[in-house]
Design a protein around this nucleic acid. Sequence first.
DNA 1: CTCGTTTTGGATAGCTCGGTCCAAAACCTG
DNA 2: CAGGTTTTGGACCGAGCTATCCAAAACGAG
Lengths: 186, 186
Amino acid sequence: MFDEDQAVDAAMRVFWASGYEATSTQELCTATGLGRSSIYNTFSSKRALFDLALRRYMEQTTSAQLELIRRTDLPIRERVRQILWRAVEPDPGDPSGCLVINTVVELGPTDPELVEILDRDHAVKLKALALEIRAAQTAGEVDASRDPEALADYVYVVLGGLRVAARRGAATRVQESVIEAALHAF
Amino acid sequence: MFDEDQAVDAAMRVFWASGYEATSTQELCTATGLGRSSIYNTFSSKRALFDLALRRYMEQTTSAQLELIRRTDLPIRERVRQILWRAVEPDPGDPSGCLVINTVVELGPTDPELVEILDRDHAVKLKALALEIRAAQTAGEVDASRDPEALADYVYVVLGGLRVAARRGAATRVQESVIEAALHAF
DNA sequence: CTCGTTTTGGATAGCTCGGTCCAAAACCTG
DNA sequence: CAGGTTTTGGACCGAGCTATCCAAAACGAG
């Protein structure tokens, strides 16, 4: 009789901050305010809860990103800038970095099942962005000789790099100037 | 009476592949071929051994990178290209990604001591690269209006992003085209 | 070869881990 | 209020964790 969404949300933040292995079930209990029984009754296992948390994180971030990618009222360059800026201006109180990136790094090589989930999500964003880049090319906003998919991949590699930098605690102004440098590639 | 360097090397690869938390002392024993006693006698703790492994990794990669950065016989653009290419063409048999990036992501927010070590190393590379970029600017190779330090930061953000992509198992040709896109920013 | 030191394997300690279980409490439905 | 179901707290489980200990083996100096 508790709010499952709220519990998943709390778990998500703990995993996000500390990683999968370093997060104990005890910490999940205190973070969610629930007892062991409630958690295991509802979510079956630590791993299953992690899956839910990761999916929830992806839903939130991906939908927000797609929305931004499709803002056809903005030049593509501006949309890309804002995508990257979001990595630099996180909500205060949120853990640093990005749960998806953290998961790729920590569990990628040992958990193909997880990688597949992440890849599917990644592919959606890439495709959407490449589509918009192509449109921008026909509109003359972007050099038509460039490969739209390569550019989309590039944007997400830079975003990943920014997320890593955030985990190191890189200064905001460093990240900002990196974004401006990155936009020169367009 | 065993080869300490060899043991650190073996440990390094296990940590690199699986991360700190997910690596058990048992795995370190089998990977090094040593017994628990030998390891604890020589290295004191799992954490201390990790420190050594990380430092060793940094020594190797940083020296190689500095060497490349200072290849004044090559245009700066070419040097940057090769730095990035190394992320795409790892030695076969090496774990995917980069131990430094993995460590930043896994332990960065919870281990300031470690972050300091990583930062010092990072700063050395950044400074060296910025210096060469500045030189390239006075030589007319690079647009003089750009900030050399921002460009150096940019290169290392892209490199980090590539290392994350490698952990996901990104196709080589995707990474290649990302590098070419990234070089457009110069 | 001998004796003092170092290194080794293997048992073991002491915890914490993820996960289970069950009785009591809280909750619905009529 | 009653009765059956769901949810909860908290004791508990076996396993695996990091780290220690110690006796035997290997080593090195004289």
